[in-house]
Amino acid sequence: MEILISQLFAGLSLGSVLLLAAVGLSLTFGQMGVINMAHGEFIMAGAYTAFTVQQILGSAGWSLLASIPVAFLVGGALGLILEIALLRHMYHRPLDTLLVTFGVSLILQQLARDIFGAPSVDVRLPELLSGPVTIMGTPVPAARVFILVLTVLVVAGLSLVMNKSSLGRRTRAVVQSRDLAEASGISSRRTDALTFFVGSGLAGVAGVAITLIGSTSPTLGTTYIVDAFLVVVAGGIGQIRGAVIAAAGLGLLQVFFEFGTTASIAKVIVLVIVVAFLQIRPQGIVATRTRGLA
Protein backbone atom coordinates (compact mmCIF):
# COMPACT_ATOMS: atom_id res chain seq x y z
CA MET A 1 0.00 0.00 0.00
CA GLU A 2 2.74 2.40 0.98
CA ILE A 3 4.66 1.65 -2.18
CA LEU A 4 1.49 2.21 -4.23
CA ILE A 5 1.02 5.65 -2.76
CA SER A 6 4.65 6.62 -3.17
CA GLN A 7 4.61 5.41 -6.79
CA LEU A 8 1.36 7.23 -7.44
CA PHE A 9 2.91 10.35 -6.06
CA ALA A 10 6.10 9.79 -8.07
CA GLY A 11 4.01 9.56 -11.23
CA LEU A 12 2.05 12.71 -10.53
CA SER A 13 5.24 14.46 -9.55
CA LEU A 14 7.00 13.45 -12.76
CA GLY A 15 3.89 14.56 -14.61
CA SER A 16 3.97 17.94 -12.92
CA VAL A 17 7.62 18.45 -13.89
CA LEU A 18 6.81 17.50 -17.48
CA LEU A 19 3.79 19.78 -17.49
CA LEU A 20 5.74 22.70 -16.10
CA ALA A 21 8.39 22.22 -18.77
CA ALA A 22 5.72 21.89 -21.46
CA VAL A 23 3.19 24.53 -20.50
CA GLY A 24 5.19 27.39 -21.99
CA LEU A 25 5.72 25.31 -25.10
CA SER A 26 1.99 24.69 -25.40
CA LEU A 27 1.70 28.46 -25.84
CA THR A 28 4.54 29.08 -28.26
CA PHE A 29 4.26 25.85 -30.21
CA GLY A 30 0.62 25.06 -29.64
CA GLN A 31 -0.87 28.49 -30.04
CA MET A 32 1.64 30.09 -32.37
CA GLY A 33 2.98 27.08 -34.24
CA VAL A 34 6.60 28.04 -33.65
CA ILE A 35 8.91 25.08 -33.12
CA ASN A 36 11.23 26.58 -30.58
CA MET A 37 14.17 24.24 -29.96
CA ALA A 38 15.62 26.86 -27.60
CA HIS A 39 12.72 26.32 -25.17
CA GLY A 40 14.92 23.91 -23.18
CA GLU A 41 17.59 26.57 -22.91
CA PHE A 42 15.04 29.03 -21.53
CA ILE A 43 14.41 26.40 -18.83
CA MET A 44 18.17 26.24 -18.28
CA ALA A 45 18.30 30.05 -18.06
CA GLY A 46 15.61 29.89 -15.36
CA ALA A 47 17.68 27.36 -13.43
CA TYR A 48 20.79 29.55 -13.58
CA THR A 49 18.65 32.52 -12.54
CA ALA A 50 17.73 30.59 -9.41
CA PHE A 51 21.43 29.92 -8.83
CA THR A 52 22.39 33.58 -9.33
CA VAL A 53 19.60 34.89 -7.09
CA GLN A 54 20.72 32.44 -4.39
CA GLN A 55 24.31 33.67 -4.70
CA ILE A 56 23.10 37.24 -4.18
CA LEU A 57 20.48 36.74 -1.46
CA GLY A 58 22.14 33.86 0.41
CA SER A 59 19.03 32.48 2.10
CA ALA A 60 17.83 29.40 0.22
CA GLY A 61 14.16 29.91 1.13
CA TRP A 62 13.76 33.56 0.18
CA SER A 63 15.88 33.23 -2.91
CA LEU A 64 13.66 30.39 -4.15
CA LEU A 65 10.55 32.56 -3.84
CA ALA A 66 12.31 35.59 -5.31
CA SER A 67 13.75 33.68 -8.23
CA ILE A 68 10.35 32.57 -9.54
CA PRO A 69 9.31 36.03 -10.79
CA VAL A 70 12.88 36.92 -11.75
CA ALA A 71 13.24 33.72 -13.80
CA PHE A 72 9.91 34.48 -15.47
CA LEU A 73 11.27 37.86 -16.55
CA VAL A 74 14.63 36.42 -17.66
CA GLY A 75 13.02 33.63 -19.68
CA GLY A 76 10.46 36.04 -21.07
CA ALA A 77 13.11 38.58 -22.04
CA LEU A 78 15.15 35.91 -23.86
CA GLY A 79 12.00 34.78 -25.66
CA LEU A 80 11.08 38.33 -26.59
CA ILE A 81 14.55 38.99 -28.01
CA LEU A 82 14.36 35.76 -30.00
CA GLU A 83 10.90 36.62 -31.30
CA ILE A 84 11.75 40.18 -32.31
CA ALA A 85 15.21 39.48 -33.69
CA LEU A 86 14.59 36.24 -35.57
CA LEU A 87 11.27 34.44 -35.40
CA ARG A 88 9.14 37.42 -36.48
CA HIS A 89 10.81 37.26 -39.86
CA MET A 90 10.08 33.60 -40.46
CA TYR A 91 6.59 32.81 -39.21
CA HIS A 92 5.75 31.22 -42.53
CA ARG A 93 8.88 29.08 -42.67
CA PRO A 94 8.57 26.49 -39.86
CA LEU A 95 11.56 24.44 -40.99
CA ASP A 96 13.83 27.47 -40.96
CA THR A 97 12.52 28.30 -37.51
CA LEU A 98 13.47 24.86 -36.30
CA LEU A 99 17.05 25.17 -37.51
CA VAL A 100 17.47 28.74 -36.34
CA THR A 101 16.18 28.01 -32.85
CA PHE A 102 18.38 24.90 -32.65
CA GLY A 103 21.34 27.15 -33.42
CA VAL A 104 20.18 29.58 -30.76
CA SER A 105 19.94 26.73 -28.25
CA LEU A 106 23.60 25.79 -28.92
CA ILE A 107 24.64 29.42 -28.53
CA LEU A 108 22.80 29.69 -25.21
CA GLN A 109 24.40 26.47 -23.94
CA GLN A 110 27.87 27.77 -24.78
CA LEU A 111 27.02 31.11 -23.20
CA ALA A 112 26.05 29.35 -19.97
CA ARG A 113 29.30 27.39 -20.12
CA ASP A 114 31.31 30.58 -20.53
CA ILE A 115 29.53 32.43 -17.76
CA PHE A 116 29.00 29.69 -15.16
CA GLY A 117 31.54 27.04 -16.23
CA ALA A 118 30.98 23.56 -17.63
CA PRO A 119 30.56 21.70 -14.31
CA SER A 120 27.11 21.72 -12.81
CA VAL A 121 26.47 24.20 -10.02
CA ASP A 122 24.73 23.46 -6.73
CA VAL A 123 21.50 25.28 -5.92
CA ARG A 124 20.90 24.66 -2.23
CA LEU A 125 17.46 23.52 -1.09
CA PRO A 126 15.64 25.44 1.64
CA GLU A 127 15.66 23.45 4.89
CA LEU A 128 11.89 23.11 4.68
CA LEU A 129 12.03 21.39 1.28
CA SER A 130 15.04 19.12 1.72
CA GLY A 131 13.35 16.34 3.67
CA PRO A 132 10.20 14.27 3.35
CA VAL A 133 6.64 15.15 4.32
CA THR A 134 4.18 12.44 5.24
CA ILE A 135 1.07 11.98 3.11
CA MET A 136 -1.26 9.17 4.18
CA GLY A 137 1.51 7.57 6.17
CA THR A 138 3.95 7.61 3.25
CA PRO A 139 7.04 9.82 3.15
CA VAL A 140 7.15 11.86 -0.06
CA PRO A 141 9.76 14.50 -0.99
CA ALA A 142 8.72 17.98 0.15
CA ALA A 143 10.45 19.55 -2.86
CA ARG A 144 8.22 17.57 -5.19
CA VAL A 145 5.10 18.60 -3.30
CA PHE A 146 6.25 22.18 -3.79
CA ILE A 147 6.66 21.61 -7.54
CA LEU A 148 3.23 20.00 -7.75
CA VAL A 149 1.64 22.99 -6.04
CA LEU A 150 3.61 25.42 -8.19
CA THR A 151 2.47 23.62 -11.35
CA VAL A 152 -1.17 23.76 -10.29
CA LEU A 153 -0.85 27.49 -9.61
CA VAL A 154 0.93 28.18 -12.90
CA VAL A 155 -1.57 26.20 -14.97
CA ALA A 156 -4.56 27.71 -13.17
CA GLY A 157 -3.10 31.18 -13.66
CA LEU A 158 -2.46 30.53 -17.32
CA SER A 159 -6.00 29.26 -17.98
CA LEU A 160 -7.34 32.33 -16.23
CA VAL A 161 -5.22 34.57 -18.44
CA MET A 162 -6.17 32.70 -21.61
CA ASN A 163 -9.87 32.68 -20.85
CA LYS A 164 -10.50 35.94 -19.03
CA SER A 165 -7.90 38.53 -19.96
CA SER A 166 -7.74 40.61 -23.10
CA LEU A 167 -4.34 39.10 -23.92
CA GLY A 168 -5.90 35.64 -23.79
CA ARG A 169 -8.81 36.65 -25.94
CA ARG A 170 -6.53 38.27 -28.48
CA THR A 171 -4.21 35.26 -28.55
CA ARG A 172 -7.08 32.88 -29.10
CA ALA A 173 -8.48 35.12 -31.79
CA VAL A 174 -5.14 35.19 -33.62
CA VAL A 175 -4.82 31.41 -33.30
CA GLN A 176 -8.28 30.76 -34.63
CA SER A 177 -8.00 33.09 -37.59
CA ARG A 178 -5.09 35.44 -37.98
CA ASP A 179 -6.60 37.41 -40.86
CA LEU A 180 -9.94 37.92 -39.24
CA ALA A 181 -8.29 38.95 -35.98
CA GLU A 182 -6.19 41.49 -37.80
CA ALA A 183 -9.24 42.74 -39.66
CA SER A 184 -10.92 43.25 -36.29
CA GLY A 185 -8.13 45.56 -35.23
CA ILE A 186 -5.97 43.19 -33.22
CA SER A 187 -2.27 43.74 -33.69
CA SER A 188 -1.18 40.18 -34.35
CA ARG A 189 2.44 41.30 -34.14
CA ARG A 190 2.07 42.58 -30.59
CA THR A 191 0.01 39.56 -29.64
CA ASP A 192 2.69 37.21 -30.98
CA ALA A 193 5.40 39.02 -29.04
CA LEU A 194 3.41 38.96 -25.81
CA THR A 195 2.44 35.32 -26.18
CA PHE A 196 6.05 34.42 -26.79
CA PHE A 197 7.09 36.45 -23.76
CA VAL A 198 4.67 34.58 -21.51
CA GLY A 199 5.49 31.14 -22.94
CA SER A 200 9.22 31.66 -22.56
CA GLY A 201 8.77 33.15 -19.10
CA LEU A 202 6.98 29.97 -18.02
CA ALA A 203 10.01 28.02 -19.20
CA GLY A 204 12.08 30.14 -16.83
CA VAL A 205 9.76 29.24 -13.95
CA ALA A 206 10.09 25.56 -14.85
CA GLY A 207 13.87 26.01 -14.62
CA VAL A 208 13.60 27.22 -11.04
CA ALA A 209 11.52 24.17 -10.12
CA ILE A 210 13.97 21.80 -11.78
CA THR A 211 16.88 23.07 -9.66
CA LEU A 212 15.06 21.49 -6.71
CA ILE A 213 15.32 17.95 -8.06
CA GLY A 214 18.32 17.76 -10.38
CA SER A 215 21.62 19.34 -11.26
CA THR A 216 22.00 22.74 -12.84
CA SER A 217 24.25 22.44 -15.86
CA PRO A 218 24.48 24.06 -19.31
CA THR A 219 22.90 20.99 -20.95
CA LEU A 220 19.93 20.82 -18.56
CA GLY A 221 17.51 21.96 -21.26
CA THR A 222 18.29 19.10 -23.63
CA THR A 223 16.97 16.63 -21.03
CA TYR A 224 13.52 18.17 -21.09
CA ILE A 225 12.93 19.47 -24.61
CA VAL A 226 11.88 16.16 -26.17
CA ASP A 227 9.57 15.24 -23.30
CA ALA A 228 8.04 18.72 -23.43
CA PHE A 229 7.24 18.36 -27.13
CA LEU A 230 5.86 14.90 -26.43
CA VAL A 231 3.44 16.27 -23.83
CA VAL A 232 2.25 19.06 -26.11
CA VAL A 233 1.76 16.77 -29.10
CA ALA A 234 0.09 13.94 -27.18
CA GLY A 235 -2.13 16.39 -25.37
CA GLY A 236 -3.41 18.01 -28.52
CA ILE A 237 -1.71 21.06 -29.91
CA GLY A 238 -2.87 24.33 -28.46
CA GLN A 239 -4.82 22.79 -25.62
CA ILE A 240 -3.69 23.37 -22.05
CA ARG A 241 -6.29 20.88 -20.83
CA GLY A 242 -4.86 18.23 -23.13
CA ALA A 243 -1.32 18.96 -21.93
CA VAL A 244 -2.42 18.47 -18.31
CA ILE A 245 -3.95 15.08 -19.07
CA ALA A 246 -1.01 14.02 -21.23
CA ALA A 247 1.60 15.03 -18.65
CA ALA A 248 -0.15 13.21 -15.81
CA GLY A 249 -0.67 10.16 -18.02
CA LEU A 250 2.93 10.04 -19.23
CA GLY A 251 4.25 10.50 -15.69
CA LEU A 252 2.11 7.71 -14.26
CA LEU A 253 2.81 5.33 -17.15
CA GLN A 254 6.56 5.94 -16.88
CA VAL A 255 6.84 5.24 -13.15
CA PHE A 256 4.52 2.24 -13.12
CA PHE A 257 6.22 0.55 -16.05
CA GLU A 258 9.56 1.43 -14.52
CA PHE A 259 8.60 -0.29 -11.29
CA GLY A 260 7.86 -3.50 -13.14
CA THR A 261 10.78 -3.24 -15.60
CA THR A 262 13.69 -0.81 -15.82
CA ALA A 263 14.02 2.90 -16.55
CA SER A 264 15.08 2.38 -20.17
CA ILE A 265 12.43 -0.23 -20.96
CA ALA A 266 9.73 1.93 -19.37
CA LYS A 267 10.75 4.83 -21.59
CA VAL A 268 10.50 2.61 -24.66
CA ILE A 269 7.07 1.31 -23.67
CA VAL A 270 5.77 4.82 -23.03
CA LEU A 271 7.04 6.04 -26.41
CA VAL A 272 5.45 3.08 -28.19
CA ILE A 273 2.16 3.82 -26.46
CA VAL A 274 2.33 7.47 -27.50
CA VAL A 275 3.13 6.55 -31.12
CA ALA A 276 0.29 4.03 -31.23
CA PHE A 277 -2.06 6.54 -29.64
CA LEU A 278 -1.17 9.20 -32.19
CA GLN A 279 -1.81 6.71 -35.00
CA ILE A 280 -5.33 6.23 -33.74
CA ARG A 281 -5.89 9.80 -32.72
CA PRO A 282 -3.47 12.08 -34.57
CA GLN A 283 -5.02 15.26 -33.19
CA GLY A 284 -4.00 14.33 -29.64
CA ILE A 285 -6.14 13.87 -26.53
CA VAL A 286 -8.01 17.14 -26.98
CA ALA A 287 -8.58 18.31 -30.55
CA THR A 288 -8.06 21.85 -31.72
CA ARG A 289 -10.45 23.52 -34.06
CA THR A 290 -8.87 26.37 -35.97
CA ARG A 291 -9.08 27.89 -39.39
CA GLY A 292 -5.55 26.87 -40.07
CA LEU A 293 -2.50 28.54 -38.69
CA ALA A 294 0.37 30.01 -40.65
Partner: peptide
Protein backbone atom coordinates in the same frame (compact mmCIF):
# COMPACT_ATOMS: atom_id res chain seq x y z
CA UNK B 1 0.60 24.29 -43.34
CA UNK B 2 -1.36 23.24 -40.28
CA UNK B 3 0.61 22.76 -37.08
CA UNK B 4 -0.08 19.03 -37.36
CA UNK B 5 1.38 18.77 -40.86
CA UNK B 6 4.29 20.94 -39.84
CA UNK B 7 4.94 18.70 -36.92
CA UNK B 8 4.95 15.45 -38.81
CA UNK B 9 7.39 17.01 -41.25
CA UNK B 10 9.82 18.18 -38.64
CA UNK B 11 9.60 15.66 -35.84
CA UNK B 12 12.13 13.31 -37.46
CA UNK B 13 14.41 16.29 -37.95
CA UNK B 14 14.11 17.18 -34.29
CA UNK B 15 15.01 13.64 -33.38
CA UNK B 16 18.08 13.73 -35.61
CA UNK B 17 19.23 17.04 -34.19
CA UNK B 18 18.83 15.88 -30.62
CA UNK B 19 20.49 12.54 -31.23
CA UNK B 20 23.49 13.84 -33.15
CA UNK B 21 24.13 16.19 -30.28
CA UNK B 22 24.97 13.40 -27.90
CA UNK B 23 26.30 10.38 -29.70
Amino acid sequence: MSPRATLSAVLPLIAVLVLTGCG
